[in-house]
Simulated assay, not measured.
Amino acid sequence: MDAEKEEILNDVTSRLWFTYRRNFPPIGGTGPTSDTGWGCMLRCGQMIFAQAVMCRHVGRDWRWNKQKPRGEYLGILTAFLDKKDSYYSIHQIAQMGVGEGKYIGQWYGPNTVAQVLRKLTAFDQWSSIAVHIAMDNTVVTEEIRRLCRTGNCGAGPLCNGHAGASESDMPWKPLVLLIPLRLGLSEINEAYIETLKHCFMLPQSLGVIGGRPNSAYYFIGYVGDELIYLDPHTTQLSVEPSDSGDIIDDSFHCQHPPCRMHMSEIDPSIAVGFFCNSEEDFDDWCQRIRKLYLTNGALPMFEVVDQLPIHLSNPDVLNLTPDSSDADRLDRFFDSEDEEFEILSF
């Protein structure tokens, strides 16, 4: 038991922990110099995506050793610093969010931060990651295979300069799969809890972003019926690299016992994340999900299909949305985009 506890603590400490920061360069040149009070979901988006980038470059089993950051780890950390020219900085996320209808300093939901991170990957040629956001509770494998074979343009064999190559000959880009879900109306339907647990157990799991109304957290695992999470609601000083490029990284790793929350307490609006480094890894994920639903009798949170169902591709078919009388409760946490999600169960 002590060895298992130590393993959990090492895993938690080795994750990149992004929290509120203060005294960073003004966002947009004239904007805020701190994200305290509004940036928690942006920080959670950074954390789940940083875990994917870590898996991409240093592997899932990498562990922090409190030595001076170097090599690929230093490159990963640099990509998330609070600077306008870092790929996944609070500056880039906040400014890219304007295109999603969010002004700088406004609350984000899981879907918005996922959409913004997807757009930012286009600038990160080093990681060369394909990001797919599965909407309508449906993972379409055909769309993912096309995306990972042709890059982010989705334009077929002429994409990325590979003229004349067939899609099957294209190299596979590592996949970040984000699935925004709503597992209930004002509270999570407990019928989904076992399925959620199994998602954390998959080797491709990146965790879950969600939380409580107006308080976002990054959930990375569970013990019993309690979720283990990293909490961004701590304001720390912004970290600047030295003239030689060195970074003091202690504040980017949570070195105290992880926080816990009973699964029934989380808000039903979440985004589940997975990382598949290769096509074989993605095939394995598909098989594990389908086997989970077939053998364990688990209530599906989403479905995996080969092709887009007709009812989702037909623009004349209206999706069911909550009654307008529920709008006040939904506005506590969800984005306008999130309100378009289908309610799985009440």
Rank of each mutant, 00 (worst) to 15 (best):
L318Y: 02
H91S: 03
T150H: 09
E342W: 06
G75Q: 15
S186F: 10
M170A: 13
G105R: 01
E279N: 12
P174C: 12
I48V: 15
L318I: 10
Q287Y: 08
S313H: 06
S324I: 08
R22A: 11
E240Q: 07
I228P: 01
D316Q: 12
V208R: 02
P203S: 10
H233N: 14
I144A: 01
P315M: 11
L196W: 01
E280D: 15
I289P: 01
N111G: 04
I193C: 12
E337V: 08
A3C: 03
H57C: 12
I248L: 01
N319M: 11
G221C: 10
F341Y: 10
D246L: 04
F200P: 04
G109I: 00
I129F: 02
C153W: 02
D338N: 10
P300R: 09
A327D: 09
Q255M: 14
T295P: 00
A298V: 06
D331R: 14
Y87K: 11
V98P: 00
L177T: 11
G151H: 05
P258R: 07
A122C: 08
I129H: 01
S168W: 06
S186P: 00
Q236H: 09
K102G: 01
E340L: 13
D61Y: 06
D306V: 13
D225H: 14
D85F: 06
Y293D: 05
N319S: 13
H132C: 06
T121M: 09
P180L: 10
V272Q: 13
K291L: 09
V272H: 14
C44G: 10
C254D: 09
L181K: 12
K102W: 00
Q95K: 08
I104F: 00
Q204E: 11
E340A: 06
D136S: 10
D231K: 01
R118D: 02
S269K: 07
I48K: 03
M47C: 07
E339C: 14
V272C: 15
G45E: 15
Q204S: 10
A79R: 14
L230T: 05
E280S: 14
R329P: 00
E339M: 13
V176F: 04
V98C: 09
I104D: 02
E194V: 03
R212K: 10
V208H: 08
M96S: 09
K5H: 04
D136E: 10
F334D: 12
F274T: 11
S166M: 06
R329C: 05
G45K: 12
K173M: 13
Q204N: 10
T150Y: 02
G164W: 06
P203H: 06
R182H: 03
G245M: 04
W17Q: 03
P110R: 12
G164P: 00
C254Y: 11
G151K: 04
L147E: 07
D246S: 07
G184T: 05
Q125L: 15
L318A: 14
Q236E: 08
I90P: 00
G184Y: 05
P322W: 02
W62G: 03
E100T: 01
E4A: 07
L312R: 07
D250F: 00
I27W: 00
M201S: 12
T121R: 03
